[in-house]
Design a binder for these strands. Structure first.
Lengths: 336, 336
DNA sequence: GGCTCATGTGTGAACGTTAACAAACCGGGG
DNA sequence: CCCCGGTTTGTTAACGTTCACACATGAGCC
């Protein structure tokens, strides 16, 4: 493998001049630059990033701590993150956690610290995760994705509350007397936001909120919730449900079908996420779309700002608006 | 940040001894080792990987080239890969491609080469992708995941043919006269394998294969295929379908439902992948499960072997068996 | 013509680690 | 007592970059 000195020899300059060309230093005569570039081309030279990192103390690598990257949301965010980082000339190193607690988060940060990442993105959807990252980060800049406002960490997130409000209001506007809610796990920030948005709208409309049906995001939880909802529907107490994510909505749809409760004739359903499957469920699901790719891009942009600006930059919170997608799982109630 | 020399001073040894302790060199007196370890602990010292990489010429980083990591399969494989690499003390650098062709693959490999990765995993599900990677890799060891036997690259893959055979045979065993197939894109290796398995079983049973219905993995394609299948079913020509993946099966289910074709009474459906949603579709989907995590682990293991062994290692092909999961979308035909 | 100043280029020394070699130490056998 | 081999430790020189500085060169000005 050729090194800088080889290029320098071929181009008839010093290695320092080669370095200057590579780093786009202004004070290089065009003719010289061309000679160097030609030599680089000729030798197929690539600079050694380890050597560079050693002296500049920057690795050009960003660390990402994520949780269950198998789910559509995190996977899409990751994709956006990776894309944006690459465009910005950064490398990305990912740690996917199976469980989130202080210990696993600590190990993840250790692992990334070992790599001397220049910055950190924490996909920290749980209250505890955000806190753990905040507590354990050294003095690396950190951006939280979908995190809370915890401890002055800058945050990039979809406006969950607004999304939930759109969903709930849509159901009320259709004429439903009230809206049930199948929620995500209580310690997830997104679940909390969606719950709040739902509650906001009901409160505003002076409607007593039905009890929250707890779930864990999984289709199975949605199925279990669906049996409960089916009972309520048959008793005439439920005609509209806002489900905290599409996967649960899918399970719920299954349970309602089993119970002979028709959607949307008997019960209207709204989901959250707009997974690729949503459009092809039976019936096609009305849902709230999150632009995960945009979240990824915004996060990288914010993190790079932070790295440039140094620690004096103020936290800030970047919010990405959700979109509401109306399909066939919602309709006016039968007996208006 | 403390460096090796600082640790050495505190421990009263030379930096070289510190290095030896860190690298588990045998010839260090236990007492000395303990002193060094204590000093490391005291200072919170971590070694600088850039400096290490500079002199050892190994970055301890593995590159992964992937395609659409938003899908369940690739995302799960990635997760397994990441897990396994971390366990083995390696870092992972990922490039997710939006489109696969020689140019994009070339850029991806360039990007990873810039990082001087020690080895490469190519999630190369398309014929062309595998070829591109094979052609453009330098002399880095490469393992293809779900790739073809192209050009002597070692491959780790789920046995697609066998999975398809299990699915098709199951339908025939139930008494169906023939089995239709909704296939994936022709240039995907997995699609090809599943198609072959389906054809094998029909040929073995001396049944003329119905025309292949082409799809592109998406729920939408499944929906389109479903309208076709519904027509065939009403005409009494189709009572069983093997769909090349679960997402398409989902869309197909939707189309059949719309057309008033009942599953499994009128038509039996088998999918492929066992996505988390499969169990909660209406009806719960009989499908072929792929152990993506295992694929990830096996790939890393194979790649590390290759890195150790050097280029003389023979290619080899590691096959992960699929599992067949029977649920409620398959039944004997109505008129036996 | 000599001075200043900007521009372009080269020289040497880091950066923090590992590798190669050398030296010191220790116990045992002659 | 001395030499020999193995174990343990230290010294020095890489690895390939960038940074700080010094040195040319040439233009512009008095």
């Amino acid at each position: 493998m050729p090194v800088m000195a080889d290029v320098a020899r071929i181009a008839g300059v010093s290695h320092q001049t080669v370095s200057r060309v590579l780093n786009h230093h202004p004070n290089v005569r065009p003719a010289t630059r061309d000679r160097v570039l030609a030599a680089i081309e000729e030798l197929g030279y690539r600079r050694n990033l380890s050597a560079r990192a050693l002296v500049t103390r920057r690795t050009n690598t960003l660390g990402v701590v994520a949780f269950d990257t198998t789910l559509y949301g995190p996977a899409s965010t990751l994709f956006g993150l990776e894309q944006a980082a690459r465009d910005a000339g950064y490398f990305i190193s990912i740690v996917s956690l199976k469980t989130i607690n202080r210990k696993t988060v600590g190990e993840a940060l250790d692992y990334l610290a070992a790599q001397a990442v220049d910055g950190l993105i924490a996909i920290a959807p749980q209250v505890e995760a955000a806190a753990a990252v905040s507590a354990l980060r050294g003095n690396v800049p950190v951006v939280a994705v979908e995190g809370g406002e915890a401890d002055g960490m800058p945050v990039v997130a979809v406006d969950q509350v607004r999304g939930a409000e759109l969903a709930t209001r849509h159901l009320l506007d259709l004429g439903h007397r009230t809206v049930w809610h199948v929620a995500g796990p209580a310690d997830w920030l997104e679940a909390e936001g969606r719950r709040r948005g739902w509650r906001n709208v009901l409160a505003e409309a002076r409607i007593d909120a039905p009890p929250v049906v707890e779930g864990d995001w999984s289709p199975r939880a949605g199925y279990t919730a669906g049996r409960r909802i089916a009972d309520e529907a048959r008793a005439g107490r439920a005609s509209a449900v806002f489900v905290a994510n599409d996967q649960m909505a899918l399970g719920l749809l299954r349970a309602l079908d089993e119970a002979g409760v028709r959607v949307p004739q008997d019960v209207s359903i709204v989901g959250f996420d707009d997974i690729p499957e949503a459009e092809f469920l039976t019936p096609p699901l009305t849902t709230v779309r999150q632009d995960f790719a945009e979240v990824g891009r915004k996060s990288i942009a914010l993190l790079l700002d932070l790295i440039e600006a140094g620690p004096q930059a103020e936290p800030g919170r970047v919010v990405v608006p959700p979109a509401f997608v109306i399909r066939a799982s919602t309709a006016p109630p039968r007996a208006t």
